[in-house]
């Protein structure tokens, strides 16, 4: 299961600030104006990357917060018995992180309409996932964003998010 696409994501130069426990956010291109704060969103816009440290705590906390008690998300021994090298992140946590990535960027007035994700290389403890996004389409007040979350062994998640932007957020 290891040995995926091994893709490396280059994180744009820029400031780095702590946002929550165990994770870092790097803001690309310096002072990118957020939609919802007067910025205009256009097809082709790249969202600044979001780095998520995949800790054991994040995996277990995400599984329990989503009420997912599958042993592979909290019991490393049983996970190995099932052929996985360690516990791994559940899909609900990935879904939540993808949603957060979009609303972190577009602001609290943005409303998620659709989130469609596919999982690939699992998120194991000790890895880092870098979420990147690109606006594919803007129609009226609604944007479609293609999201990729790459970890050290490949693409953990690929997906598409449809989000309604607050007034002034779309061009």
């Amino acid at each position: 299961m290891r040995g995926g696409e091994g893709e490396r994501v280059r994180v744009a130069e820029g400031q780095r600030g702590r946002v929550g426990e165990g994770e870092r956010v790097r803001v690309g291109e310096g002072e990118r104006v957020r939609a919802g704060e007067g910025g205009r969103v256009r097809a082709g816009d790249e969202l600044p990357p979001l780095e998520i440290e995949i800790t054991r705590t994040l995996i277990v906390a995400g599984a329990i917060a989503s009420r997912d008690y599958q042993d592979v998300h909290h019991d490393a021994e049983l996970a190995r018995h099932r052929g996985s090298p360690d516990v791994f992140m559940n899909i609900l946590t990935t879904n939540g992180l993808v949603g957060r990535y979009i609303t972190d960027h577009f602001g609290p007035a943005a409303v998620l309409r659709k989130v469609a994700i596919r999982l690939g290389a699992p998120n194991y403890p000790g890895d880092t996932m870098v979420l990147t996004g690109r606006v594919e389409e803007v129609e009226g007040d609604t944007a479609t964003v293609r999201v990729v979350g790459a970890n050290g062994i490949g693409r953990h998640v690929t997906g598409t998010v449809t989000v309604t932007l607050p007034p002034g957020g779309a061009s």
């Binding site: 929550g20 906390a61 917060a65 609900l92 946590t93 939540g96 949603g99 957060r100 989130v115």
Partner: peptide, 25 residues
């Protein structure tokens, strides 16, 4: 929100909505 590190203001306060991605939860 704690687990996801999601600090979106829409998910707290008197007019809070649930994160849409919680649907399955």
């Amino acid at each position: 929100c704690e687990a996801m590190g999601d600090t979106n203001a829409a998910y707290t306060g008197p007019d809070a909505v649930a994160p849409p991605t919680m649907l399955q939860a």
